[in-house]
Simulated assay, not measured.
Amino acid sequence: MDDLKIELLSSISRIICNKYPQTGIYNTNLPNLYISRFNAQRMIYRHFIHPTFIVFLISGDEVKGEFGDSKFSIQKGESLANNIFVPLSISLPPCSTENPILTVNVPLYRPYISEVLSHLTTTKNYTSVVNSFHTANTDKKELSAMLSILHLLDSKEDVAYGYELALKELYYNLLLGKHGDFIRGIFAGSLRNNRILEVINYLSKHYKENPNIKELADKAFMSPSNFYKNFGEITSLSPLQYVKKLRLYEGRRLILTEKYTVSHAAHTVGYLSRTQFSIDYTKIFHHNPQEDCNPSAQK
C-alpha cells in the first residue's frame, strides 16, 4: 500500500473516529449512507441493508462474513459491491478503541449511475448480475471521492446537491476501476430481471406475510407461470422457499442478538407453529434453535 493511499485511509479514519467514538452502526445525515464502528470482537447479524450497495473497509483487520450461504472476506483498503437480497452475518476480528473496525456503506443509485454511464463510451456487452457480490482493492481516486462525501457529514448547509455530485464522482471512479464490470452488470439487467428484483425487494419488506403468487406476478407484470419460472431462474428458489429462508434468517438474528425465545422469534417472523419453525430452522442451520438461545437473557 503506497503512502498516498495510507494517508487517505488515515484521513477518513480520523473523520469517522472523531464523529463516532462509540461502537455502533450510524445512519448519517446523507441518505442511505451508513458508517459502522466496532471497538470489540463480535458477530453481527443483520436482516437487510440497502440491497444494492458498496462497503469500504477503512480500518481494522480482515473481516469475514456471509450473505445467506455465500462467504466473503475483505481487508483494510478493500471494498465489496453487492446486490444480494438476503440477510447478512459478519465475523469481526479482534479490535479495540485504539484499533477499531471502520466501514462506510454507500448506496448505488441507478439514476446517478445511469447518468455517469451515459458519459462513458464502451462497445462491450455486460452480463447481467443478480444476487451476487464482488470484492476489489479500493484505489486512491475512490478514496479521495469518499473523503469528499465524508466532509459533508458536519455541514450545516443543504447537502443534497453536494452529496449528489460527490456520489457521481465516486461512481465515475468505481466504473473505471476494478468494480466497473460488476457494477455495470448490476444495472445492465433486462426488464424481466428488474421486475423480478422489484418483487424480491418487496418480499424483503413483507416476508412475514404469506406470499400470493398471483399478486406477486401482477407486481412483475407477468403471468403466474411465467413469474414462477423467472423467479426460480434468478434466485434458485420458489417464492415460498425464498420467504421461508428470509423468515429463518431473521428468526436466527432475533434469537442471537435480541435474545428472543424460540416461540417469540417464530411468531415475530410469521410462523404460526413453533414446532414447524424449529424443524425448518434445523434444516437450514443444522442445529435446533434452542441451542442458539441464552436462557438467562431471553425476552
Rank of each mutant, 00 (worst) to 15 (best):
D3F: 09
S10K: 03
S11D: 14
I16N: 04
C17Y: 08
C17M: 15
L30P: 00
P31L: 07
N32S: 13
L33P: 00
L33V: 12
S36V: 09
F38K: 08
Q41S: 10
Y45H: 02
H47M: 03
F48P: 03
H50C: 13
H50I: 06
F56A: 01
L57H: 01
S59D: 12
S59H: 04
D61F: 02
F67C: 05
G68R: 02
D69T: 13
K71V: 12
S73T: 07
Q75I: 00
N82M: 09
P87T: 12
I90V: 14
L92C: 06
L92I: 13
C95I: 06
C95Q: 10
T97Q: 03
E98V: 04
N99D: 11
I101F: 03
N105L: 12
V106Y: 06
L108W: 06
L108D: 01
P111D: 15
Y112D: 06
I113T: 11
S114Q: 12
L117Y: 05
L120N: 08
T121F: 12
N125I: 10
V130D: 10
H134T: 09
H134K: 14
T135Q: 04
K140C: 11
E142Q: 14
S148K: 15
D154Y: 00
S155G: 03
S155Y: 06
K156G: 05
E157H: 04
Y161Q: 10
G162M: 01
L167N: 04
E169V: 09
E169R: 08
L175G: 14
H179Y: 03
I183C: 01
F187E: 06
F187C: 09
A188K: 01
A188G: 02
S190L: 02
N193V: 11
R195V: 02
R195Q: 15
E198F: 03
N201Y: 08
H206P: 03
K208W: 02
N212Y: 06
K214V: 11
K214D: 08
E215N: 06
A217M: 04
K219G: 05
A220M: 13
P224L: 07
S225F: 10
K229D: 03
S238A: 07
K245A: 12
R252T: 02
L256H: 09
E258H: 11
A266D: 09
H267N: 08
G270E: 13
G270N: 05
S273K: 02
T275P: 01
Q276F: 03
Q276I: 11
S278Y: 10
S278C: 04
Y281K: 04
I284M: 13
N288E: 15
N288T: 14
E291H: 10
D292P: 00
P295K: 15
Q298I: 15
K299V: 13
